[in-house]
Computed example of a mutant assay.
Amino acid sequence: MFVFDSELHHLKESFGPSNELIISLQRSNQHKTIDNGILSSTLQQEAEFLASYNYEKSTLWRKQIGYLYKSLIEDYFAGFILHCKEWKSIFCNPSRSAFLGSATSSLNDTLVQGTRWNCGLLEPFYSLPSWCLATVPQLCLINGISLYPKVSSPWFMNFSCIFLCSLLKHLLEVLNTGGSVLTWCSKQRIWMIKSITCYTYATIDAILKCFGMKQPCFSPTNKVSDDEQAKLHQLGKFNFHTSTKFLAPLVTLVMLNMIAFTGGIARMVISGGANELLGQVILSFYILLESYPIIEVMAWRKDKGQVPASVALLSFVLSIILLLLGSVVLRLI
Rank of each mutant, 00 (worst) to 15 (best):
F261D: 10
F261R: 05
F261G: 05
F261K: 08
F261W: 08
T262W: 01
T262Y: 02
T262C: 08
T262L: 05
T262G: 06
G263R: 13
G263N: 14
G263E: 14
G263C: 15
G264L: 08
G264R: 03
G264H: 04
G264S: 10
G264A: 12
G264I: 06
G264W: 05
A266D: 13
A266S: 13
A266K: 13
A266H: 11
R267G: 11
R267K: 13
R267P: 05
R267C: 11
M268N: 10
M268H: 06
M268Y: 04
M268I: 15
M268W: 00
M268E: 09
V269N: 08
V269M: 11
V269I: 14
I270C: 11
I270H: 11
I270R: 12
I270W: 10
I270S: 08
I270D: 12
S271Q: 15
S271L: 14
G272M: 04
G272D: 05
G272F: 11
G272I: 09
G272S: 07
G273H: 10
G273F: 05
A274W: 05
A274Q: 04
A274F: 07
A274M: 03
N275A: 12
N275G: 14
N275S: 12
N275W: 05
N275V: 06
E276Y: 07
L277C: 09
L278N: 02
L278E: 03
L278M: 12
G279I: 00
G279M: 02
G279S: 11
Q280K: 07
Q280V: 05
Q280D: 07
Q280P: 08
Q280W: 03
V281I: 11
V281N: 04
V281F: 02
V281S: 03
I282H: 06
I282S: 12
I282W: 02
I282L: 15
I282C: 13
I282G: 02
I282N: 03
I282V: 12
I282E: 09
L283R: 11
L283S: 14
L283W: 04
L283A: 14
L283N: 14
S284E: 02
S284T: 02
S284N: 11
S284F: 03
S284H: 05
F285L: 13
F285K: 03
Y286D: 04
Y286M: 13
Y286I: 13
Y286R: 10
Y286S: 12
I287G: 00
I287E: 00
I287L: 09
I287F: 06
I287S: 01
I287T: 00
L288S: 03
L288G: 03
L288W: 05
L288T: 01
L288E: 06
L288V: 00
L289N: 07
L289H: 09
L289D: 07
L289S: 13
L289V: 09
L289E: 08
L289R: 10
E290Q: 11
E290L: 14
E290V: 08
E290H: 04
E290N: 11
E290C: 09
E290K: 05
S291Y: 00
S291M: 04
S291K: 04
S291E: 01
S291F: 01
S291I: 03
S291W: 00
S291H: 01
Y292N: 08
Y292P: 02
Y292S: 12
Y292I: 07
P293F: 00
P293C: 04
P293H: 04
I294F: 00
I294Q: 03
I294P: 00
I294K: 02
I294C: 02
I294D: 01
I295S: 13
I295D: 07
I295M: 15
